[in-house]
């Protein structure tokens, strides 16, 4: 059920970034979600659809990249695929496994529509000043 809170955080973060860049609309949002986060994609999409009404993200296309868990076996010193969330090395049966990926909950990118009236030069200045 925390997909709703996650959706809310995504919208807040994405719209803040878009506002900073003087965009008028967010046309797409790319998310990277690790499989270990227990986020249900359908619930998240539903949450985003409901909560984005009336925001710059209302029409945004949502792309979700699901990241499988990868571990690092400290005994064998190599990366292993984590199957069924078993953090056990298939080679040495070791349980000293460090998580390399699978816990992501990131906004990778946003696609922005900007008002034509705002010149490229002006946008450049805005970006520069916010980065500084």
């Amino acid at each position: 059920m925390h997909e709703l809170s996650i959706a809310d955080s995504i919208i807040k973060t994405a719209t803040a970034e878009a506002t900073k860049r003087r965009a008028t609309e967010i046309s797409a949002v790319g998310l990277r979600i690790g499989q270990l986060t227990d986020i249900v994609e359908d619930s998240l999409r539903f949450g985003l659809e409901v909560l984005s009404k009336g925001t710059m993200m209302e029409k945004a296309e949502i792309e979700i990249e699901s990241i499988p868990p990868i571990g690092y076996c400290e005994t064998c010193a190599r990366n292993i695929e984590i199957r069924k969330f078993f953090f056990v090395c298939p080679e040495c049966n070791g349980r000293q496994i460090k998580l390399i990926s699978g816990n992501e909950l990131d906004i990778a990118y946003i696609e922005l529509e900007t008002d034509d009236k705002v010149s490229t030069e002006e946008k450049q200045n805005t970006t520069d000043s916010t980065d500084a």
């Binding site: 996650i6 955080s9 995504i10 807040k12 973060t13 970034e17 860049r21 046309s27 797409a28 998310l31 909950l105 990131d106 906004i107 990778a108 990118y109 946003i110 696609e111 922005l112 529509e113 900007t114």
Partner: peptide, 16 residues
């Protein structure tokens, strides 16, 4: 044309 910006932000960065 929409402009793609790689922002690489953690969704829960505020909580973190």
């Amino acid at each position: 044309m929409p402009e793609r910006i790689e922002i690489e932000k953690k969704v829960l960065s505020e909580n973190d």
